[in-house]
């Protein structure tokens, strides 16, 4: 048990606490809201780890059931989202292990995706495009751009994909993402950067 016993509230997670209380009380609307907030992201992360969308959906469903069963034991050591994703990632990893799939969240070796873009002195060979066609209006108008982004994220290695979803889409704190994935902050930043480079390249291909 946390010795603080739920007396002190860390600023910023007070709304978590209200959500948790509503969930403990069996508030369906509160659960539906939480579900819509995280479910798709959970499936995306779990798909990266298990390698299968169908398995990921099962694992995610199991994770939600576990969340509701154990919600009364939630402590304020993490945010509610951090706690949920910890449950999910642990389940996805053990499922992958059972299926003989080894998953590593390493940043991997050196990134060479832009190696050809620079000359010997590290200057641009060709100036990057201005992307003048990409405006908020156009993005709202067509789903295509967002589909390209989603497809690019789905093509990332599991670690980069998890970091991109947790940090870049769900807005979890850096320390929380590191704790969930068991990586250090330096690695996390490297993975986020590489993931963005890959997504950037996919958008750039569409723009040309």
């Amino acid at each position: 048990m946390d010795p603080r016993g739920g007396c002190t509230r860390v600023p910023g997670i007070g709304s978590d606490w209200e959500q948790v209380r509503a969930l403990i009380a069996g508030d369906r609307a509160a659960f539906a809201q939480l579900f819509r907030q995280h479910n798709a992201a959970m499936v995306r992360v779990a798909t990266g780890i298990t390698g299968s969308r169908a398995v990921a959906e099962e694992v995610t469903q199991d994770a939600w059931v576990a969340v509701l069963k154990h919600i009364a034991g939630f402590e304020e050591r993490s945010s509610l989202a951090g706690w949920i994703f910890t449950i999910l990632v642990n389940r996805a990893r053990s499922r992958a292990r059972v299926e003989g799939r080894s998953v590593s969240f390493d940043a991997g070796g050196e990134d060479n995706s832009l190696a050809a873009a620079f000359d010997g002195r590290g200057h641009w060979k060709d100036t990057p495009a201005l992307w003048e066609e990409i405006t908020p209006d156009r993005i709202v108008a067509g789903r295509r751009m967002l589909d390209v982004v989603t497809a690019a994220i789905e093509a990332l290695p599991p670690g980069q994909r998890a970091v991109m979803v947790l940090r870049g889409q769900q807005g979890l704190e850096a320390e929380e993402v590191c704790a969930i994935l068991g990586i250090n902050e330096g690695n996390m930043r490297v993975m986020l950067h590489r993931a963005r480079l890959a997504v950037r390249a996919a958008i750039d291909r569409l723009e040309r």
Binding site: A32, N39, A40, W124, P128, I134, M145, V149, Q169, R196
Partner: peptide, 27 residues
């Protein structure tokens, strides 16, 4: 131009993460 592209990439990543049509059935 590149840094602008990275900002756009960050915004589009965030936008692509919003909601999913499959949520209701899964819920």
């Amino acid at each position: 131009a590149f840094v602008h592209q990275m900002r756009v990439t960050r915004s589009l990543t965030l936008a692509a993460g919003q909601g999913s049509p499959d949520d209701d059935a899964a819920l």
